[in-house]
Design a protein around this nucleic acid. Structure first.
Lengths: 218, 218
DNA sequence: CCCTTTGTGTTGCATATGCAACGGTAGTTT
DNA sequence: AAACTACCGTTGCATATGCAACACAAAGGG
């Protein structure tokens, strides 16, 4: 499973563990399962006692709405993890379904084994817990930021909030955005053509300038 | 400071520590500061090396928006904490400002002392870390849920998503909501009268029934 | 070279929404 | 009883938005 080790080294949860990686996996007792394309990995309502680490394949996280409307929350690729929030929070029934978009293999790490320092008091446990904390905290911040964008009532406000956040992040009023128009519209949860319209208007009014993915605040 | 101890017992971060609470505080070396009404507790751009625990008074968390627009993110009362996400994520510059709405006292706990099990290997450290994990994870889930609501494009969809989430939570199609109309409109980030209009329409169409804060899905 | 696909801007139109204003009800104060 | 306030529903109106359709350019495959 050399290929798996390569993937595992990229997992953020294992940052800084490096040479002890194999020892740690032994200690944590991870369980690897494989799934066929379309197979369900985790069903809504089931408990979430473990963090899932994607070793191969593509995986979708889906939420079923009360009237059966499915919405895709995220799509995950190898070295990404899922279920860390539910497992850490100790929720008894998963509100989401996870399914294999392609053939996939997933390693499950019991949250109890992660949280509780093991009897051998392995040195990497502290690192592991710190990583988990950091992952949850960062996701928290990302979600808060997105929340702030979505709280705006008009597309114009959403766009300007987004762009100024990016400018602040890059420390420059001119910057590239990592989204196509389609993706930006999806991200801001607005209609693509309406977004296009607003962008044009903002440029006409001299508030922003843009060509392709390069934007500039004025 | 008997009064403080009472407050500290209600802090979720200290759940399950109970009789060891005072010993733990000794070990963590918390620092208490007092603030006058209107005084700044944490300024945007400053580092966040500690978690703040509110001992007395009311505190506001504020974000300054791209052109100086202030928006209040939360208002906190005694036994609540702030900064846990930023401290855990290790952000160098706080994106928010925290200020005292009334005279207030706050205890700061260095995140390093929380995360790293102390030399004496106090028994409560694991509990403390587990609590912090759980707090971050739960906030994560709350933020995700709110995100889902705000992702909806129309007020009708937002309302129905919110109501069905509540119904699911209570396990019953009839339930009370914890918000006034004003508060619900704020929560969903929409205009109050527009919300009222949509609720009326939904009732007329026989999709929901409501009187005051009691709602029923049909 | 033609055709398809993809990404983007534009526009017409019906509808949803924000905003301001008004009215009504219930509870509280004077 | 009168006055005041808080909360909520209703409505008119200007505007923003979603949606569908179309045009155009660039890229790639046959």
């Amino acid at each position: 499973m050399d290929k798996n080790i390569e993937v595992l080294r990229k997992v953020k949860l294992f940052d800084g563990i490096d040479e002890n990686l194999e020892a740690m996996l032994q200690c944590l007792g991870g369980e690897v399962k494989t799934y066929d394309r379309g197979e369900i990995i985790l069903l809504t309502g089931q408990p979430v006692p473990a963090v899932g680490v994607i070793l191969s394949g593509e995986v979708q996280v889906i939420q079923e709405d009360y009237y059966g409307n499915r919405s895709i929350l995220t799509e995950l690729s190898p070295s990404h993890i899922f279920g860390e929030a539910f497992a850490s929070a100790g929720v008894k029934e998963s509100p989401v379904t996870v399914l294999a978009k392609t053939n996939a293999s997933v390693m499950f790490l019991g949250i109890e084994r992660i949280i509780n320092t093991c009897p051998n008091s392995c040195i990497f446990h502290n690192q592991l817990i710190e990583n988990l904390l950091k992952i949850l905290a960062r996701k928290n911040i990302l979600l808060s930021n997105k929340n702030q964008l979505l709280s705006r009532r008009t597309i114009q406000d959403k766009v300007l909030s987004y762009l100024s956040l990016q400018a602040e992040k890059k420390g420059n009023l001119a910057f590239e955005i990592p989204f196509s128009r389609n993706e930006l519209a999806d991200f801001l949860c607005v209609d693509r053509s309406a977004l296009s319209r607003v962008l044009s208007k903002l440029q006409k009014e001299g508030i922003i300038e843009y060509t392709n993915n390069h934007f500039k605040l004025l």
